[in-house]
Design a protein around this nucleic acid. Structure first.
Lengths: 144, 144
DNA sequence: TCGTTAACTTGACTCACTCCAGAAAAGACG
DNA sequence: CGTCTTTTCTGGAGTGAGTCAAGTTAACGA
């Protein structure tokens, strides 16, 4: 778990101003991967007291734009954020409870980066989402 | 392009009642792949006259549930529907204009279906979204 | 043709997210 | 340190895709 000064360095590295809400948001996302915006707001408020939801939305967008955070939004779910960036990992989503887990790239590096027929598109990223059932829900389904 | 009776057969095959709105929605999605809900409502109304948006939402959900349609919703876009189902194809999305194109599975069959570490999840589907720039936007960017 | 049950209509409502204008704070520069 | 400029934060109103609920209508099997 990085410290506040680590986050400060991150922000400065991205030439972003260092503010308490930003540190708090970074910290919240590091501590709660795949949290939705609402939970993040909750965590930030626990640490800082009153912070407008607007500020959190702003910060999340700024940090996402700067590449410090990654935004993921599986179907049927609200936007979620995570702090693991730059390592091209993917996600498994539970169809039943919506839980999300990280998955590293399966087939070596950049498995599916080449589409068979790209229609002339210039492709720069392949995003993979695995759909399935998480251990808890699998167990629950069996026992019912 | 399938005919109305083809759609009727599809519906009966899924043990769904055959109604005008359903035929119209199926037809609209076949004719306009990757259309968003609003456009679908527009097309359906052109063919049928007044249809409540609720009905279209309902039909879309019923047909998606029955596997007759597939719902896709890339980040930052509203839900879109397409009629190609069961052939495990994927999509390229243009970052700039949001255009969507179909892409067949690149690496033979079910390329990325196995995650390296599945955290105990039972995975049944891998969804791949390629992000890039479509030909039009690439050209536009160059000439500017 | 009749009854059951699924589907459709209408209209209100929710909720994530955005827009706006003004106040406040951060960083730059002398 | 003090001032100036720029960016960020606050609070509140607004937007829009999608959902809920109750009542009516129509499909389809008997």
């Amino acid at each position: 778990m990085p410290t506040a000064s680590d986050f400060e360095r991150l922000l400065r590295g991205a030439s972003l101003r260092v503010t308490a809400p930003r540190i708090a948001v970074l910290s919240a996302v590091h501590g709660h991967p795949h949290a939705d915006t609402d939970s993040i707001i909750g965590v930030v408020r626990q640490n800082l007291g009153a912070v407008s939801h607007q500020a959190v939305y702003d910060v999340l967008r700024a940090l996402t734009g700067a590449g410090l955070l990654r935004r993921i939004e599986p179907q049927g779910s609200v936007a979620r954020y995570e702090a693991r960036v730059g390592d091209n990992h993917h996600h498994v989503v539970c169809r039943s409870c919506g839980a999300i887990a990280d998955v590293d790239c399966s087939v070596g590096a950049a498995p599916c980066l080449d589409a068979s027929d790209d229609h002339g598109f210039v492709i720069d990223e392949a995003e993979v989402i695995y759909w399935g059932t998480c251990p808890e829900c699998t167990t629950a389904a069996k026992s019912s």
